[in-house]
């Protein structure tokens, strides 16, 4: 990620330290992860210690400090999905992709995350791939859905 893009985001928030989290969110959505140089730049320009930037980047779920795969798979582990068998869906996704939640496969095809609730409880168990909701998932349907993403 080039530093000018980071600077533009920082400038938008007038370099205010209190906007730290908002700035990191924008970098995350722009670049899909937070590279070390970006964090260092934010720390310097906002005059916020690097220790705090690091803590925030690892504290909040929205942030990733490692590159993401081409497709982001989110399996909902909300309570409603859980009682409707989300664990079986997750087991199957792990099986099919060979990765655990929080990981990205070596081909950078999929990144897998578990999320707490997507608020589509009526459709549970729910899986989201690149923002598209796949509802009423069964382990078998999971594999079919994943196959659509190269």
């Amino acid at each position: 990620m080039d530093i000018e893009r980071v600077d533009r985001i920082i400038d938008k928030h007038r370099g205010e330290a209190r906007a730290l989290i908002q700035i990191l969110l924008e970098i995350q959505s722009d670049n899909r992860w937070l590279p070390k140089e970006a964090l260092t730049r934010v720390s310097e320009r906002l005059q916020v210690p690097m220790t705090r930037v690091q803590h925030i980047a690892t504290f909040y779920k929205a942030f990733s400090t490692v590159p993401k795969g081409r497709h982001e798979v989110h399996v909902c582990m909300g309570t409603a999905c859980h009682v409707r068998g989300a664990q079986r869906v997750l087991d199957k996704v792990q099986d099919a992709t060979g990765i655990q939640p929080g990981e990205t496969d070596s081909d950078l095809r999929f990144s897998l995350e578990i999320v707490n609730c997507l608020g589509c409880c009526a459709l549970g168990p729910v899986m989201e791939i690149d923002g598209k909701t796949h509802g009423r998932m069964s382990p078998a349907a999971t594999v079919e859905a994943l196959n659509d993403y190269e």
Binding site: A17, H55, F59, Y60, K61
Partner: peptide
């Protein structure tokens, strides 16, 4: 508007305020 970056504990009032100040919640 402050967008929360994803932490259940920030629903707790003092953690939410800490987060609003731009810190870990």
């Amino acid at each position: 508007v402050h967008r929360g970056a994803g932490a259940f504990v920030c629903g707790e009032s003092s953690a939410l305020m800490t987060a609003l100040e731009g810190k870990p919640g």
